[in-house]
Design a protein around this nucleic acid. Structure first.
Lengths: 191, 191
DNA sequence: CCTACCGATCGGTAGG
DNA sequence: CCTACCGATCGGTAGG
C-alpha cells in the first residue's frame, strides 16, 4: 500500500530474492546483499531488522498469494470439479510464473526460517495442500475423477508444478504452461 | 568395490548426505560433520580432500544411478513404448526411494559444485532428460501417446517424481508409488 | 587422527 | 546511511 516510502526495503528484498535463489539463503551474506544494492553492510539494518526477516517476507508473501488463489477457486460455486481443478492448476502456474525467483526461495529455502515462523509456514503449506486436495475429493465423490489416493495425487501434481522454478528452458507462455499441466493431469498422455 | 578399506570415508559421506539435506550444503560446516562422525575437524581431511569433493561424490553417484537406469530401459528392445515409460518412471522412483537423502542433495545442492564438476553434472542431467524424452517421442511416432510438446511433458513428469524427496508423508510403498505415478501420467484422472 | 593454528568472513551493533 | 568494530565461525593446513 505505502509503496513509495518502502521502495528501498522493497529493492533490498527483491535483490535478496535473486541472491537467495542463486546462492541459497545460507550461501548469501549480508555483505553480498549490501554490495548488490549499493550499501555498506551496516546500512542494510536501517531498512531490515535481520537476514531472517527478509526470508520471512519472501516466503510469507508467496504463501499468501497461493492461499488467496485457492480460496478464490474454492468459492467458484457454479464451476464443475474439473473446471475448479483447471483453475487451481492454471492459477498456481500463473503465480509461479509471475515470480520465479520468489517461488524458488519459497520452495527451497523456507526450511531456514526460525520458529515460530517455521511452524506457521508449515501450517500454511498444509492448509494449501488440504484445500487443493478437497477439489480432487469432491471430484471423486461426484464421479468426475478416478483417483485411488487423493493425497498422493495432490502431492504429485503440486510437485510437478512447483518444479517449474528449476526448469532451464521452456518454450510455452505461462498461460500455455498452465493449460498443458492441467491437460496432462486430467487426461494423461495415452492415446 | 573396495568397500572395507573405505568404510570410514563412506560413513563420512553418508553423514554428510544427511546434514546437507537438513541444513543445506552452505549451511553445513566441516565442524558439524566432524562432530557427527566423532572426529575433530582436521581429522576429516585424512579421509576426504575437501567439502566440495563430498558433494561431488553424492551428486555423481546419484547421476550415474539414473543414467544406468535409463540406458537399461532404452535397451529393452521388445518392450512397447508404454511399457518402457512405465519402467522408466518406476525405476526412477525406486532409485529415489532407495536413497531419499542423497536424492535431496542431488536435486537441491548440485548448484554448489565447482567447475568443472558443475558443467559435467549439467551435461549428465541433460543427457538423462534427453533419453527419457526419447521414449515419449518414440511413443508419439508410433501413435501410442498423444503429446504436443514432449520436452514439456518430460520436465513435468521428472519434476513430479523428483519432488518426492520433499514430501512429508506418504502411505504407499516405493513400488506402489512408482505404479501410481505411471498411471497418473499415462491415463490421467478423468473418469 | 589430534593439536594448534591460519587468514577470511560471518551476522550484527554502537555511535554519529 | 557510514565508520569502525564485536565475538564467533568458516574451510583448510602443518607437523606430528
Amino acid at each position: 500500500m505505502v509503496v513509495i516510502k518502502d521502495s528501498r526495503k522493497n529493492q533490498i528484498i527483491e535483490t535478496a530474492t535473486q541472491l537467495f535463489k542463486s546462492k541459497g539463503y545460507s550461501g548469501t551474506s549480508m555483505r553480498d546483499l549490501a554490495t548488490e544494492v549499493g550499501l555498506v553492510v551496516g546500512g542494510l539494518y536501517s531498512h531490515v531488522n535481520s537476514k531472517d526477516e527478509i526470508l520471512q517476507n519472501i516466503c510469507f508473501d508467496m504463501a499468501n498469494k497461493f492461499l488467496r488463489h485457492i480460496d478464490n477457486v474454492l468459492s467458484m460455486e457454479n464451476f464443475s470439479n474439473k473446471e475448479k481443478l483447471d483453475q487451481a492448476i492454471q492459477g498456481h502456474v500463473r503465480i509461479i510464473s509471475t515470480d520465479i525467483n520468489a517461488t524458488s526461495v519459497f520452495w527451497n529455502e523456507w526450511k531456514y526460517l526460525p520458529d515460530p515462523w517455521l511452524s506457521d509456514f508449515s501450517k500454511m503449506q498444509i492448509e494449501y495442500e488440504s484445500k487443493f486436495r478437497s477439489i480432487l475429493e469432491d471430484g471423486v465423490t461426484a464421479g468426475d475423477f478416478s483417483i485411488d489416493d487423493p493425497s498422493f495425487t495432490t502431492m504429485a501434481i503440486l510437485s510437478s508444478l512447483n518444479g517449474l522454478q528449476k526448469w532451464r528452458t521452456y518454450s510455452q507462455s505461462p498461460e500455455e504452461l498452465g493449460r498443458s499441466f492441467a491437460q496432462l493431469f486430467i487426461t494423461g498422455i495415452k492415446n
